[in-house]
């Protein structure tokens, strides 16, 4: 299992649209992927879970990925966060 810390950079935060983008990427991979915020951990393939994180701009999340394609999955998700979900 590998993990990385990311920051929500876009102004509107992890609202519906970025959440959908994130889930679509997570769902492409076989690995189990989790997002952790303040000990609260959710399945990154669950849109409901990601939305209930309600992560606003500046909040820090931990991505955990576990499986054969974990490295690729983690990298793609990090890129998504770094790009501010295409909203910056």
């Amino acid at each position: 299992m590998i993990e990385a810390e990311v920051t929500v950079k876009n102004r509107a935060g992890l609202h519906t649209r970025p959440a959908a983008a994130l889930v679509k990427i997570a769902a492409k991979y076989k690995s189990e992927i989790y997002l952790v915020r303040d000990k609260f951990s959710i399945n990154a393939k669950s849109i409901i879970g990601v939305m209930t994180l309600a992560a606003e701009q500046g909040s820090k999340l931990l991505i955990k990925a576990d499986g054969n394609d974990e490295a690729q999955a983690l990298q793609e998700l990090i890129n998504l966060f770094d790009a501010g979900f295409g909203e910056i």
Binding site: A20, K24, K45
Partner: peptide, 16 residues
Amino acid sequence: AAIMETNLLILSDPVI
């Protein structure tokens, strides 16, 4: 498209 995509993701949400 984004609205409908979100609904689709909710419908097929693995946790739900």
